[in-house]
Computed example of a mutant assay.
Amino acid sequence: MMNERTYKKLHEQFRLNGISYSKEELKEVAYSFVKEGKAFEKEIGDFLIDWLNNESTVTVHTSGSTGVPKPIVLRKQHMVNSAFATGDFFNLKPGDTALLCLPVSFIAGKMMLVRAMVLGLSIDCVAPSSNPLLETSASYDFVAMVPLQFGGSFNELDRVKKLIVGGAPVSYKLKKEFLIASLRTNVYETYGMTETITHIAVKPLLAALVETDIDLDVFTTLANVKIATDDRGCLVIDAPLVANETIHTNDMVHLTSEKTFKWLGRLDNVINSGGVKLFPEQVEAKLAAVMENRFFVAGVPNENLGQKLVLLVEGIPEIAALKEKIANLGSLKKYEIPKEIFTVDAFVETSSGKIKRKATLKKVAL
C-alpha cells in the first residue's frame, strides 16, 4: 500500500465522487471541471490543476476576516504534512469516507482534497450551502464545516462520525442546541489559520462525547507543534512541518500546558473600559443565551471610560425587550453589560461570510 508522505503521488485508495483516478486521469477531470463544471467544481478543478503540476508550491489567499485578503505561497509538502497530522490525530484510515462541502477558494476546502489524495480517503464533493448533507444520502467518517453549516445540519448529522468545525468560534447558542439535540457525532472545534495550513489545535465540543474530565475550553495541539506566548500574551506557534517561520498571532491565550491552551480573544478586539480589559468574544458567549439575531460587541471612544462597551445587532430587534433580557442575564458582570445598543441592517462580511467588525462599526453613527 502506498503510504509515502509526498505530494508527488496519489494514494491508491483515493476516490473522488466514488471513482478512482490516476494522476493523468485526475488532471483530465480537473480540466473538465474548469471548462464545464458548476461554480464550486471550477474551484475544485483550478486547485487540482495547481496541485498536480510540477511546482512545489501553491498560492492561496487568506480569508480577510482580520485584514485585507492577501496571497500566501505554501509548500505542497507542508500541506501533506498537515494532512497526515490531521489523519493521525483523528485516526483516519485509507478507504474512510469524507465530504467536501467548503469553498475550495480557501485553505480549508483545499485541505479536504489534499487529505483525501494523500491519506486515501473516498471524498464526495457538493456545493457549499447551509446544510450540505441534504445534497447527499451517504454517511461519512470525516467532514469539515463552518459554524453556519454545523448549525444547519443538525437533522442530518447522524450520518457523520467525526466533524471538525472551524473558520470562526462555535457560539454558545449552537453548543446549547447541539446538546439539546443529543447528537452522537464527535464534533471538534479547530484553531488555525491559512499560515498554519488550517488547524494546529483542536478541542472537543461536548463532554458527553469524550472523557468527562476533559476541559472543553482547552485546545490541544497536533503533533510537532510547539506553542508559547509573547510579551503581549498572544500565541506564538512553532510548527516547522507546516510553516517555514515561527508565527506570531494576535490571539490572546492562556497556556495550560506545553500542548494545551485556552483562547481568550483577539488582541485587535480587546476593549479597555475604565481600566478593565474586556474580551468581546467572552462577553458575546454570555450574551448569546438571549440573542436571536447576529450580533457582536465592540469598544467605542468615551471621555470618562476611555472606551465604552456597545452592542451591535443585525436587523431590527425590539430594543427595550432586549435590554431587559440582558439586564436579567445573571452570567454578565456589571462592566460586561453594554452601555448602548445599535442596530445595522446588514453586517459587513468577507467573501467567506465572516463578520468584518471594524467595517460594520463604521456604519453606525456614533
Rank of each mutant, 00 (worst) to 15 (best):
P338G: 02
V225M: 06
C234E: 03
K323G: 00
S122G: 08
A327H: 15
L255E: 06
V68I: 10
A207F: 11
F219V: 00
K203N: 04
K173H: 11
V253N: 09
E135V: 01
I197R: 07
Y31N: 11
C125M: 05
K277H: 14
D238E: 15
S22K: 12
K70D: 05
G275H: 15
V143Y: 13
G265F: 03
L305M: 08
E25Q: 15
E245A: 08
F47E: 00
D88R: 15
T66V: 00
V242I: 14
T249M: 05
A144T: 08
V283L: 02
V297N: 02
N328M: 08
N244G: 14
K203V: 00
E55P: 06
V170N: 09
L133P: 12
V218F: 11
G152I: 04
Y335R: 09
L102N: 08
G192N: 12
I44H: 13
P69Y: 11
L99E: 04
E12P: 08
M291L: 10
K358R: 15
I107S: 04
K363F: 06
V126T: 01
A228N: 15
E41F: 13
D345P: 07
A83C: 05
D231P: 08
H11Y: 11
T194L: 04
K23G: 09
L322I: 03
L278K: 05
L148I: 09
K35T: 04
Y140P: 02
N155V: 10
H11D: 07
V29H: 12
S351Y: 13
V118A: 02
A223N: 14
K358Y: 09
V143R: 14
S129P: 11
N224V: 00
L134M: 13
M2G: 06
L287I: 02
V187K: 08
R159N: 08
F84V: 00
H61T: 06
L16E: 04
T343D: 00
F106N: 00
T6W: 13
P103E: 13
V344G: 02
S137E: 15
A39P: 07
E258M: 07
S20M: 10
F90L: 05
I326L: 06
L278I: 02
E340A: 07
Y335S: 01
L311I: 00
E318T: 05
T136W: 13
F219P: 05
K76R: 12
G330T: 12
E324T: 06
E314N: 02
L121W: 13
L206N: 12
F33K: 11
N224R: 15
E12S: 13
R115Q: 08
G265E: 03
M117E: 04
K323L: 03
E43W: 12
S32N: 15
T246H: 10
K27C: 05
V73C: 09
N244F: 14
R159H: 13
A228T: 10
L16V: 01
A243F: 11
V126C: 03
K333S: 09
T343W: 14
L329I: 06
G192Y: 13
V114D: 03
I107G: 03
D238L: 07
I49C: 09
K362H: 04
K259Y: 11
R266F: 08
G64P: 05
K226E: 13
T62F: 09
P204F: 09
V270R: 14
S22Q: 12
G18Q: 10
G18S: 07
G306S: 07
G120D: 04
K93C: 01
K35N: 11
V170Y: 12
T350R: 06
